[in-house]
Simulated scan of single mutants.
Amino acid sequence: MAYDLASPTDLSALSSGVSWWYNWSPSPNAAVPTDYATRYGMVFYPMLWNGSFNAADIVTYLKANPTIQYMLVLNEPNLVSQSNMTPQQAAQLWPQYEAIAAQTGVKIVGPAITWGTMTNYEDPVAWLDAFYAAYEAANSNRAPQIDYLAFHWYDYGLDAQLDRLTKYGKPFWVTEFANWHSQNDGAQIDTLAKQEAQMTDMVATCESRTDVFRYAWFTGRVSPDPHFSSLLGATGVLTDLGTLYLSLPMQ
Results as ranks from 00 to 15, higher is better:
Lys63Ala: 10
Ala64Gln: 13
Pro66Gly: 13
Pro66Phe: 08
Ile68Glu: 09
Glu76Ala: 06
Leu79Arg: 14
Leu79Ser: 13
Ser81His: 14
Ser81Gly: 14
Gln82Asp: 12
Ser83Cys: 06
Met85Asp: 09
Met85Arg: 08
Met85Lys: 15
Gln88Ser: 07
Gln89Gly: 14
Gln89Leu: 09
Ala90His: 02
Ala91Asp: 08
Ala91Cys: 06
Gln92Ala: 13
Trp94Asn: 02
Trp94Phe: 06
Pro95Met: 14
Pro95Cys: 15
Glu98Val: 11
Ala99Leu: 11
Ala99Cys: 10
Ile100Cys: 03
Ile100Val: 09
Ala101Asp: 09
Ala102Ser: 14
Gln103Tyr: 15
Thr104Ile: 12
Thr104Leu: 04
Gly105Ala: 04
Gly105His: 11
Val106Tyr: 02
Val109Pro: 00
Gly110Pro: 02
Gly110Arg: 00
Ala112Asn: 05
Ile113Lys: 00
Thr114Leu: 10
Trp115Lys: 04
Gly116Ser: 05
Met118Lys: 10
Met118Ile: 13
Met118Leu: 13
Asn120Arg: 12
Glu122Arg: 08
Glu122Phe: 07
Leu128Thr: 01
Asp129Pro: 03
Ala133Val: 15
Tyr135His: 06
Tyr135Met: 05
Glu136Pro: 02
Glu136Phe: 03
Glu136Gly: 06
Ala137His: 11
Ala137Lys: 12
Asn141Gln: 11
Asn141Pro: 02
Arg142Thr: 05
Ala143Ile: 14
Ala143Gly: 11
Asp147Pro: 01
Leu149Val: 05
Leu149Asn: 02
Phe151Val: 01
Trp153Arg: 01
Trp153Asn: 01
Tyr154Ala: 07
Tyr154His: 06
Tyr154Asp: 10
Tyr156Gln: 12
Leu158Cys: 07
Gln161Asn: 10
Leu162Glu: 05
Asp163Thr: 14
Arg164Lys: 10
Thr166Met: 07
Lys167Glu: 02
Tyr168Ser: 13
Tyr168Asn: 08
Gly169Phe: 03
Lys170Met: 02
Pro171Cys: 06
Phe172Ser: 00
Phe172Met: 03
Trp173Arg: 00
Trp173Tyr: 15
Trp173Val: 00
